[in-house]
């Protein structure tokens, strides 16, 4: 309750440009959320559907007619792939961000509070992870996981989780370390609170506020990485789900032969959603970060002061 109130408070106080950024971002993201949730109804066909009513789809059909945005060289309907792609993208992003957020928060809290060797080792591991180029790391984990659980939404989400985990860990650990030294934590210990209580009741509520911003900023980044994975063929298999990155790589050959519709729409979807998520992230950052935030100060009119 308190946490929610503290997290939501800045929204009401946003003004000016940052509010517009936030709003624009929310509109864009909401559009894709609608696509993702309502894919069954919005998309005319399935993501791996090659025929309807016993009639095979034409290969590389131009936009128009039965196929609003045309079909690609695998006989898939492009518009349906874009719509289903939104679902895949959002599923992976939500899973990856939630995974790294929860894991990073838990590890960061414990590591920061406990300190000592546990903390040192974790910091070392996380720094090592952080030092890798995100894409490379995602590829490695994508490979490993594809072997074990197949190249689906879950494995893509898991490999992205590993990529973004260190960021949450570092932020949460650092704010935990500074919060650990605060008087209210010492007071809690003086009351006889065990470590578990200190972490859940005294530290959690005071370090959580930095997390949502990284979450939204990371979401945009994660989408880019996911698209890259798909582009390299390490993302989601076309039969398991629609993947914009995968479609984009398929469309590469088409581009030279004047077939533009297979690549443009999935590419635009990627760009648009990344933009939307970034706007939300930056908007949030400006709102939540007290240094960047412009507070509303009422101007006093001269008439008011004359009694």
């Amino acid at each position: 309750m308190a946490v929610m109130r503290r997290v939501l408070a800045p929204f009401r106080e946003t003004v000016g440009f940052s509010r517009w950024m936030l709003l624009a971002g929310i509109v864009i993201v909401a559009f894709f959320v609608v696509l993702a949730v309502g894919a069954e109804w919005i998309a005319p066909y399935g993501y791996a559907q090659k025929s309807a009513d016993g009639v095979d789809f034409p290969k590389l059909a131009e936009p128009g007619g039965d196929h609003l945005l045309g079909t690609d060289r695998l006989f898939f309907d492009v518009w349906s792939r874009v719509v289903w792609g939104a679902r895949t993208a959002l599923e992976v992003i939500v899973l990856a961000v939630a995974g790294s957020m929860i894991l990073g928060l838990a590890l960061g809290l414990v590591s920061g509070y406990v300190g000592g060797w546990f903390d040192r080792i974790l910091v070392l591991v996380m720094d090592a992870l952080y030092a890798f180029p995100p894409l490379l790391l995602a590829i490695v984990f994508g490979f490993l996981l594809a072997d074990k659980i197949g190249a689906g939404v879950v494995s893509a989400a898991l490999s992205l989780t590993v990529v973004y985990l260190p960021q949450y860990f570092r932020v949460v650990r650092n704010s935990t370390i500074s919060a650990r030294e605060s008087t209210y934590v010492e007071a809690a210990r003086a009351l006889g609170a065990p470590g578990r209580t200190v972490i859940t009741r005294y530290l959690f509520g005071n370090v959580i506020h930095s997390v949502p911003v990284i979450g939204t900023l990371n979401a945009a980044d994660a989408l880019g990485t996911l698209a890259a994975l798909g582009f390299l063929g390490l993302g989601i298999q076309p039969t398991d789900g629609a993947d914009w990155g995968f479609d984009l790589s398929r469309a590469l050959d088409d581009a030279s032969s004047g077939i533009w519709w297979t690549g443009v729409f999935s590419g635009a979807a990627i760009v648009l959603l990344i933009t939307g998520l970034t706007l939300v992230g930056e908007g949030l950052n400006e709102t939540i970060n007290p240094v960047l935030r412009k507070k509303r100060l009422q101007k006093i009119r001269r008439e008011e002061t004359i009694r």
Binding site: A2, R201, N206
Partner: peptide, 12 residues
């Protein structure tokens, strides 16, 4: 404690 503002968890 000396500083009552710091001695209470602001989120509680």
């Amino acid at each position: 404690f000396q500083d009552p503002s710091a001695a209470l968890n602001p989120a509680m």
